[in-house]
Design a binder for these strands. Structure first.
Length: 573
RNA sequence: CGGGGUGUGGCGCAGUCCGGUAGCGCAUCUGCUUUGGGAGCAGAGGGUCGUGAGUUCAAAUCCCACCACCCCGACCA
């Protein structure tokens, strides 16, 4: 390809509203253009990257035995009503109406459609297992789209769905997809980690996210540097403390703490560590119109994990208590509540594992402006129920027992999930087994954010000059930059021949034949992240040499033409 | 949904307080010079100043309403 025949335009300044580096660079390099909030046009240069990502995914999905299909973006409301998600999905689901007044949605995902396809055509265990995938645009009406293509409203996604006779076979395919995803992200040259993810109400170990490691990621990951343990922070288990609770030593005493409500404030006011404070959080569950209060106890420096709370029997539908509710139940404002003196009939008290080993702690006195010091479980209040309620913190022991947890941030680019029979049941997707018994299929689903990968790759590969793409997904592999294409016949013919030879040899090459000064050409080729550059100039040609420079290499080297070919062949192999 | 901010050629911005012919840099076009790290000079084109309704002799500027976009927050007591 020649620049003069291609279509791309770079900017010296990025639009002011672009926040993260990938968004700024993608706009500056002319990979994408914003059309509306969270909606982008993929310009030819960006589309080449997107297509390369897509191709790697397609090759590996095919290799893993999945079969490609293409479903519609516009889906009838009936299917969503049948699965129950017409009501449940909420405002992220873009609903539209046709000229006859019939309801449709623009698909944010395709469980309904794929399950409908399979239930119509798959009747026997002989046709199973079956894994279908597509690469297609999705639309999710995000509250706040941001970060360019990393959280867009319309985005390209690879979604795969597998159907099985029995759970064991689902687990086999899940491992198969896990391996395929690992190959995919490895081939793309990304630094990533598979992390255990929340499985919602389904439970079990059936969900992993594939996270590209990046500071600007939106997800917090807890991992163990000494093992392969990694989990979403929200999911990581906080182990019970290794040491037992020390004996009570101090007497219970009520102290005035006027205006001090947050744990950190109280700690500072009393001149103690937040670890000595018992944090009490009031939540409410409504059952049959009855409000039930629960007090959740945490060590002062720990934070509550709402997902873990939602998994406690009886608290599935909890919400935080309002100020008025706290006043009504405990007779004091929030900020001064605690477990001491609370009627067990009135409120369930559940302590985090770490909180249960605290002694002589500080907690709210259930009187405005006062806290207790020297409080102890068993002596001053009943022993609470115990549960894992908190988010893990850096330095906590790894749940696999192999070291301490560290934190990093990641961008979720893939998610695999054992759906089990949720959708198959709702849509009555069944098969006949060997005995002629009708059985509901087990399902898995496997997603990859194709367009998000491009953003994640830029987020991971950039420097002060612009994007540094991994060769596997760069818009072009090699840039041929002539010095004086329109001035020197020698340079022109050498650059043309080099371009043709490289193309013939199978390289993906861009000859920058624009009539610009060398500085502009260099700057643009670097900005758009082409990994390899060959400069053709009279200087080198007179010695029969070409100049090679890798995008990330500090210096250029002069090489004989055939040596350049050999080097490229080696680097791009 | 709550709070804050911004809307002026393709991009980045000034002008708004204090009303009086809409400006700068980049980009684009023409010419000359230049040519191994985003050139120089001379000239040119391009803007209903987010939309609407007001005040005024006169509105980018003042008033009101609306829209769009961006940022932060959404209950850890």
């Amino acid at each position: 390809m020649r620049s003069s025949r291609f279509f791309f335009k770079t900017l010296k300044e990025a639009p002011a509203d672009a926040e993260v580096v990938s968004q700024r660079l993608m706009l500056r390099a002319g990979l994408i253009k914003r059309v509306a909030a969270g909606i982008y046009t993929w310009m030819p240069l960006g589309l080449r990257v997107l297509r390369k990502v897509e191709t790697i995914i397609r090759e590996e999905m095919n290799r893993a035995g999945a079969v490609e299909i293409l479903m519609p973006a516009v889906q009838p409301a009936e299917l969503w009503q049948e699965s129950g998600r017409w009501e449940k999905y909420g405002p992220e689901l873009l609903r539209i109406r046709d000229r006859h007044g019939r309801d449709f949605v623009i698909g944010p995902t395709h469980e309904e459609v794929i399950t409908d396809v399979v239930r119509r055509d798959v009747k026997s265990y002989r046709q199973l297992p079956l894994t279908l995938y597509q690469i297609q645009n999705k639309f999710r009406d995000e509250i706040r789209p941001r970060f360019g293509v990393m959280r867009g409203r319309e985005f390209l996604m690879k979604d795969a769905y597998s159907f099985h006779a029995g759970f064991a076979d689902l687990e086999r395919e899940y491992r198969n997809m896990y391996a395929a995803y690992t190959r995919i992200f490895t081939r793309m040259g990304l630094s990533f980690r598979a992390v255990a993810a929340d499985t919602g109400s389904i439970g079990g170990t059936g969900s992993h996210e594939f996270q590209v490691i990046a500071e600007t990621g939106e997800d917090d990951i807890a991992y163990c540097p000494d093992s392969d343990y990694a989990a979403n922070v929200e999911l990581a288990e906080a182990l019970p403390p290794a040491t037992p609770r020390p004996a009570a030593a101090a007497a219970l005493e009520r102290v005035a703490t006027p205006g001090q409500t947050a744990c950190a404030e109280v700690a500072a006011y009393l001149g103690i560590s937040p670890t000595q404070i018992l944090k009490t959080i009031a939540v409410v569950c409504e059952r049959d119109g009855e409000k039930e209060l629960a007090l959740l106890l945490l060590r002062g420096d720990h934070t509550l994990n709402e997902i873990k709370v939602g998994k406690i029997a009886g608290l599935e539908t909890f919400r935080f208590a309002s100020e008025a509710e706290i006043e009504a139940f405990l007779g004091c404002p929030p900020g001064y509540i605690g477990p001491v003196g609370v009627d067990p009939q009135k409120a369930r008290v559940i302590a985090d594992r770490s909180a249960t080993v605290m002694c002589d702690f500080v907690c709210g006195a259930n009187v405005a402006g006062f806290h207790f010091t020297g409080a102890n479980f068993g002596r001053d209040c009943p022993e609470p129920e115990v549960a894992d309620l908190r988010n893990v913190a850096p330095g906590d022991p790894s749940p696999d027992g192999k070291g301490k947890l560290a934190f990093c941030r990641g961008i979720e680019v893939g998610h695999i999930f054992q759906l089990r029979t949720t959708y198959a049941e709702a849509l009555d997707c069944a098969y006949l087994d060997e005995q002629g018994q009708r059985r509901i299929m087990e399902m898995g689903c496997y997603g990859i954010g194709v367009s998000r990968i491009v953003g994640a790759a830029v987020e991971q590969g950039n420097d002060e000059k612009g994007i540094v793409f991994p060769a596997a997904i760069a818009p072009f592999e090699v840039a041929v930059v002539p010095m004086g294409y329109f001035k020197s016949e020698m340079v022109k013919s050498a650059a043309d021949r080099l371009h043709d030879d490289l193309v013939a040899a199978g390289f993906d090459v861009l000859l920058d034949d624009r009539d610009e000064r060398p500085g502009s050409l260099f700057a643009d080729m670097e900005l758009i992240g082409i990994p390899h550059r060959i400069v053709v100039g009279e200087r080198g040609l007179k010695e029969g040499k070409l100049e090679y420079k890798g995008r990330a290499d500090p210096v250029a080297t002069l090489l004989a033409a055939d040596a350049v070919f050999a080097l490229l062949a080696e680097k791009l192999r």
